[in-house]
Each structure stands twice: as C-alpha cells, then as structure tokens.
Design a protein around this nucleic acid. Structure first.
Length: 568
RNA sequence: CGGCUUGUAGCUCAGUUGGCAGAGCAGCUGACUCUUAAUCAGCGGGUCCAGGGUUCGAAUCCCUGCAAGCCGACCA
C-alpha cells in the first residue's frame, strides 16, 4: 500500500503497526478477550474498605494518555463510559526488558487503539478511581487519528462539531461525543417501553411486507423498484396500515409493528426519506379508548426515561401527565380563527380562507381546505400534548364516520410542540363505504391531487369478509425520540441520516494506471516506445495519456528525437 | 426548488487593503514514577472544497459547480 495520499499522522500509525508486528505483537488478534467487569461497574461498586475489584479484566478504546516518564495514566472507554488506568513501567515489565512499556505502550500505541487490561482497582492521590494495570493486550491498532476532544469541569474544548462529518462518520461522533450515544440508548428505551406495554396488554408484534405491489395506507409519493423474477413493479411501503388490518380480519385482536416506512419526498429538520412508525390495531375498541391508550404510552415512556412526566423540549417543558386535553377540530378552528366550519360547504370554506389570508388551490377538496386552515392557524398553538379530534370525512378515507355527525370521522391526532405525534381512528370496516371513499380519492387524484391514495382491491376483499370494529393508531418514533431527548433535528435521532453521496476523488482508470506503472521505471521515455509497451489501442492510449497529463501526473515534451513522456 | 451562511493542518478556528499559509489542541523528538484540558523544551505537518476568470501576484475579488447547515416552499 502506498503512503502516497496519507496524512503524516496516518503514516506514523501505519509504521507503528509494522513495528508491533516486528515485535511479534498481533495488532488484530483473533482470540476472545475475556472481561469480567466494565468501567461503570467499577465506578459504582468499588469500595476500598472491601478491597474488591482486585483482579479485573476490561477492554476498551484508549482515549487519552498522560505519560510521565516511567509511569502513565490513560483513559479506557468502553460501552458504558470511561475509567482511568495507571501503567507503571516496572510493573508492566518486571525484568530487564522494558520494551512493553518504553516501546509498545509509550510509542507504538496511540489514542484510539483498543486494548484489554488486567489489574486491580485503587484510588489515586487526586481521588480518582483507577485501574492499576499489571498487563495489557493490544486488541486493535487504529490507523486514523480521532478528533481530540478535551473536557474540564463539564466544559468541552475543541469538540467534534461539523454536522456533515458527524452524520457521515457517525462512528467517530459516537466515539468522541458521549452525549450522542445517550440519545440512541434512549431511543431504544422508548421502543422497549412501548413493546413491554403492548405485550402486557396481550398484543402481538408482527412483521408485514415492506415491498408492496400497491403502496397503500397513506397519501404519499412512494419509492419504486422492480422485481426481476416476477417482472413486476414494487413499491417500498409508505405505511403498513392495510396489512395490519388484514391481520385483524384474520382474527388477531391486537397487532403492532415497529415499521420502517419510506416516502419519496422532501427532507428537512423533521423528515427523512426512511423513518420509523409504530402502528397498532386493537379489535373491539374505538378511538376514545385509543386516546387513553396513547396517553398511557406517552406517560410511561416519559417516566421510563426521565423518572418524571415533565420533559424539557427547547424553550418548553412538556408535561405528559395523563389525561391530555381533547379538542375537536371545529372547536380548535373556532377558537383560533373565530369561524365555525361546521355545516359549511366548499364555497363558504373558500370564502373563509380568503378572509383569513390562507392560499388554497382549486384542486383542493373540502377536507384539504379545512386541514389547511387548521395547519395555518391552529396547529402551532398546541405545545402541550393535546388530542385534536373529529376530522372531516374527506381527508380521512380509512376512518369510520363519526357516530353523531356523518360529515366527520372518528379520528384524532396527538399534537405535541405544535407537531403531529400520533394519528388514530376508529377504523372504517364498512366495505361498501370504504370502496366509495377510495373512489372519492380517485376523483381527487383525477382533479390533480397527486398524493391521493391508491385503491387496494385485495384490502377491500378482506373487509368484505368482515373486520371487527377496531381502533388503530400510528406514532412517529423518530419524532417521539426527538421530543423525549430534546433533539431539534431528526438527524440527531437517526444513526445514519440520509445524505448526498460524498464526491469521490478523481481516480485513475485502469488504462491510466498501466501507463503510470510503466512510467515509474522508464520516465522519461519516447512516446511511441511507451505506447508500444502498454499494448493499448490508439484510442485507449490517447485517452489514458490525456487523462494523466490533465491530472498533471505526466507531461509530454518535444525534442529533436521526437516526443517524450515524463512523469511529474 | 428559492434565500442566507459555511467549506483553510487529524479536530476547533484565525487569516487585515489582493503581497512568503497561522494559532490552540492532536502528532513527532527529548525530560518527568499519582497525572487528569498533565507540565516543560524543541520539531514537523497544507489539493486553502473543485474548476474557470481578473491580476505582475488570489485562501482573499468575479463566475460556475459540489457538499453541508439554517430559513422558506413542497411534503405529514
């Protein structure tokens, strides 16, 4: 491997790697390294009076070294935190050979290397719990320097902050920014808390297709792909709703899925093309029951993470104490605009929009207009958890009509911090009504609404066999994690947020490499002679040499004896 | 898709009117047996995002492109 484009520090690390091998130390050993404790366990349980932890094995990444001649301190970072280690030359190397300390530990190891240590725990004069190392084992030689983040009294210096690098190289972010790991641990706690609750209720976790022939269950542009053997188009799911309902038809009475969904739409602080939604369907329940269930989820998650229902989010403190207020959409609009939308027809609603200064386009139906009014004038007011209920029928094609008012549906959205967190219905189970609603969607799409829903005939067939009255709910897990961890961007709660590919460096083509290899030994050389040696066709030769000269790796010069090629 | 901002050493950032490319940390060499942003002495390290242009001279000014962040549009 050429050291051609490596930085100085990378070259030094590669040389250290070589020297380790020369000392018969395998920098990438295969054997298991048995540990018997962790950094956190030692810090929590070490007691000098008990004299415990006197023979510990632990492993981790060496993050910082303070070498003071014949003794050194370093920090070992494992998955639970960091602990200081103390390395003394004459204890690591009891005999005359001090190589393991002077050479290996002091010179050949670097910040970022992974080592295992054996020793005993003690407390330094400065009062820090420390592992006194008797033996160490190289477990991995790191070839790239880590960003050097330092910290004192809770203040961080020279933090690794460039968002592009943090997201592209999340592994580095996770190594040097401990608070990043916390967010993801909490994300898992959220999911575990929910899963545990659903299982307590006796509901069953299921998996449904991600590749779907018809992308149903939500109004959104799908990603399209193609199955070669079947020779059919397939879509990445935008929702899993219709499949979960088929399972309710099949006789399951409570099913849920933590689902990755995919939507081929814009990206911003709250949207990533792939994202996670939890959807749950419970037979014989209605949306009122589901509100209680939903607020229980929120309260339990908040308590599990923070030990309190009050969670800081930006400038606000959100209180997830149940019960949450319930406000109908009409009440919300009445309150924030002064207009009563109940019983109004499309023309009257357009008139209201005009007076409110809300732009709407002609393709919008009644439902979309109402949604627009709510979105513009009401949504952002609901900071504390609030259920907005009873949406107009036009914008809820999968929802049962309201028991008291056929213009409305039995639907709620849970608003937190002015954003939708969950969406739920009393599910429509009248197959004839459902077919008509799909037909309505078709008309909308013909009118120009490019996100109206597709019609799934098999789903209608399932409904015709009969689905019990059911309530279903979907909750955005990424958004919930943002709320619960006070993260302003979805990128902070996804390990690998979507990014544009990095521009790849200009690489040499195969033909250019051939020419360059020959040039290395022959340069300068007669052009015709070099061309002959490459065995390339006229066209290929021409392209290769032009490429090399353009990249300033070679030059062509003219002398009395003809054309000569020279390496730069 | 539009507006604003940013891109310089491994990391965080300076860089004046266009005039030899800078600092701290990290790294290297040396000293140091309880340090902890270790300390002390010395040293090295650059495709100034890429490509054009203006100029005697460009990190700096102009144009085009790439990538990122924020705001907006679209979108749940």
């Amino acid at each position: 491997m050429d050291n051609f484009e490596l930085s100085e520090q990378e070259i030094i690390r590669r040389e250290s790697l070589k020297k380790l091998r020369e000392l018969n130390i395998d920098p990438y050993p295969a054997a298991e390294y048995k540990i018997n404790t962790t950094s956190r366990e030692i810090k929590e349980k070490f007691n000098p009076e008990e004299n415990n932890f006197q023979d510990v094995y632990l492993a981790g990444r060496m993050m910082n070294r303070r070498i003071m001649g014949k003794a050194s301190f370093a920090e070992l970072q494992d998955h639970e935190g960091r602990i200081q280690i103390y390395v003394n030359r004459d204890e690591i190397c009891p005999g005359d050979d001090k190589t393991m300390y002077n050479e290996v530990f002091k010179k050949l190891l670097d910040r970022g290397d992974i080592i295992g240590v054996e020793g005993f725990v003690f407390i330094t004069q400065m009062g820090e719990i420390t592992v006194h190392v008797k033996n160490f084992t190289v477990l991995n030689k790191s070839l790239r320097p880590l960003p050097s983040v330092k910290e004192k009294d809770g203040k961080t210096y020279d933090a690794f902050t460039d968002p592009e690098q943090r997201y592209r190289q999340r592994y580095v972010d996770l190594i040097v920014n401990p608070q990043v790991k916390d967010v993801f641990v909490k994300r898992t706690q959220i999911i575990n808390t929910m899963r545990q609750m659903f299982n307590e209720y006796g509901y069953i976790e299921v998996e449904t297709p991600i590749l779907q022939p018809i992308p149903g269950g939500a109004a959104a542009r799908p990603f399209m792909t193609h199955h070669n053997t079947l020779n059919i188009p397939l879509y990445l799911r935008v929702a899993n709703e219709l499949y979960l309902k088929r399972l309710i038809v099949g006789g399951f009475e409570g099913v849920y899925e933590f689902a990755k969904d995919f939507r081929n739409e814009g990206m911003d602080r709250t949207h990533n093309p792939e994202f996670t939604v939890m959807e749950i369907y419970v037979a014989y329940k209605d949306y009122k029951w589901m509100m209680c269930f939903t607020e229980e989820i929120c309260e339990r998650v908040a308590l599990a993470l923070h030990g309190t229902t009050k969670v800081k989010l930006g400038e606000h403190v959100i209180d997830y104490k149940t019960p949450f207020p319930r406000v109908t959409m009409a009440e919300a609009i009445q309150k924030h605009t002064g207009y009563n939308i109940l019983g109004k027809d499309e023309e009257q609603l357009r008139e209201i929009c005009k007076k409110l200064g809300i732009e709407i386009d002609p393709s919008m139906g009644k439902g979309k207009i109402i949604d627009e009014i709510f979105g513009e004038k009401c949504e952002h007011h609901y900071i504390q958890p609030t259920f907005i209920t009873d949406y107009p029928v036009e914008m809820s094609p999968l929802t049962k009509r309201h028991r008291d008012n056929p213009e409305l549906t039995e639907r709620f959205e849970l608003m937190v911090n002015g954003k939708e967190l969950a969406n739920a219905y009393s599910e429509l189970n009248d197959p004839i009504d459902q077919r008509e609603r799909f037909d309505e969607q078709l008309k909308l799409s013909e009118k120009g609404d490019d996100e109206a829903m597709f019609i799934d005939q098999d789903f209608l067939r399932a409904l015709e066999y009969g689905m019990p009255p059911t309530s279903g709910m979907g909750m955005g897990i990424d958004r919930l994690t943002m709320f619960m961890t006070n993260s302003p961007s979805i990128q902070d709660v996804l390990f690998f947020p979507q990014m544009k590919p990095e521009k790849k460096k200009v690489e040499l083509t195969e033909d250019e490499k051939i020419v360059l290899e020959l040039l290395k030994t022959l340069s300068p050389v007669n052009l015709e002679q070099l061309k002959g040696k490459t065995g390339l066709s006229n066209k290929k030769w021409d392209k290769a040499i032009k490429g090399l000269t353009k990249q300033k790796l070679a030059t062509v010069g003219k002398t009395a004896e003809g054309l000569f090629v020279e390496m730069v």
